[in-house]
């Protein structure tokens, strides 16, 4: 038993899932942190990215990894269109953050219903999948498929890239400043709407990339996103809302918990566990477990 638990196999599975959770948590965090928008359609952008990758591969036969920049641009484009059409006015009304949060939740719920059903109407609700890079590599006792290795490496590279961008460039620091203190950021001369546009592009783009990576290993359906929306919320609440590094750590933590729970109990335990963790975290500490939320 202990052998199974300490095996590289489980750790590898947790790492692959964790990198994806960290990536979608990061996107949700950027959008929430800079604009106080509670994006419950986040998982649906992941779903769109997954469909993008599926159709790209099915139609061209070229690896979806090549198309990731295109997929990211698509996600970012839809996000920016939503921002321009729906959210810019809401943000400019000067309403209290609590009101904006509540309204954005309802608006994104509407967006989520529309995205899911338009997708179902266009592509039908039939699950789709494709085989790509599914060679098995054996390293020691651990068997890994190529697509999982690729997914892990790409997700880690993007996480690293975004962290460097946020901590080492002036623009990234402006985003972090806006997350930490909106009014102070405005006073020191940060162009808030420009920062918000970049945060939207990064947030929605990274969700679409996560979907593209996921499509290599999981079936694609119009309603697949929901699970990941919830996971993303667990991750960012666990890591502290707006706390980028905390969210990344929480992403890997959630994946470890999930993978081990499924192994120890059953696949059905997964949902109980994720929602249980979600409820428990909100009740115990809505400020996040890994440090205070940055307001």
């Amino acid at each position: 038993m202990l052998d199974t638990l300490l095996s590289g196999q489980l750790l590898f599975a947790a790492a692959v899932l964790g990198a994806l959770y960290a990536l979608i948590g990061l996107g949700l965090n950027l959008v929430y942190g800079t604009m106080r928008l509670l994006n419950i359609a986040h998982g649906d952008f992941l779903m769109l990215g997954a469909y993008g990758a599926f159709w790209w591969f099915t139609l061209t036969g070229i690896s979806p990894l090549i198309a990731l920049p295109l997929i990211a641009a698509g996600g970012a484009g839809i996000g920016l269109a939503l921002y321009a059409l729906v959210f810019r006015k809401q943000l400019a009304t000067g309403l209290a953050p609590a009101v904006i949060e509540a309204r954005s939740l309802l608006l994104f719920f509407g967006v989520s219903v529309v995205i899911q059903n338009v997708t179902a109407l266009l592509f039908s609700a039939t699950p789709r999948a494709y085989r790509h890079l599914d060679t098995v590599y054996q390293i020691g006792q651990t068997a890994m498929t190529g697509n999982r290795i690729a997914s892990l490496l790409v997700a880690l590279a993007i996480l690293g890239g975004v962290l460097v961008f946020l901590n080492r460039t002036l623009f990234g620091l402006e985003i972090k400043a806006l997350i930490q203190h909106r009014e102070a950021a405005r006073i020191v001369g940060i162009n808030v709407s420009r920062v918000q546009i970049v945060a939207i592009a990064l947030g929605f783009g990274s969700a679409a990339i996560a979907g593209g990576l996921l499509s290599m290993t999981e079936q694609v359906t119009p309603f697949m996103g929901f699970r990941f929306t919830i996971a993303a919320f667990v991750v960012i609440i666990m890591g502290g809302l707006g706390n980028i590094l905390g969210g990344i750590v929480a992403g890997f933590l959630l994946a470890v918990i999930e993978i081990y729970a499924v192994t120890l109990f059953s696949a059905e335990a997964r949902s109980i566990l994720i929602y249980g963790a979600f409820v428990a975290i909100l009740l115990i500490s809505p400020q996040g477990l890994l440090g205070r939320a940055r307001r």
Partner: peptide, 13 residues
């Protein structure tokens, strides 16, 4: 459902 979502968005806005 699509119309439902659009109605919700329109009413909130």
């Amino acid at each position: 459902l699509i119309l439902l979502g659009l109605c919700l968005i329109a009413f909130v806005l």
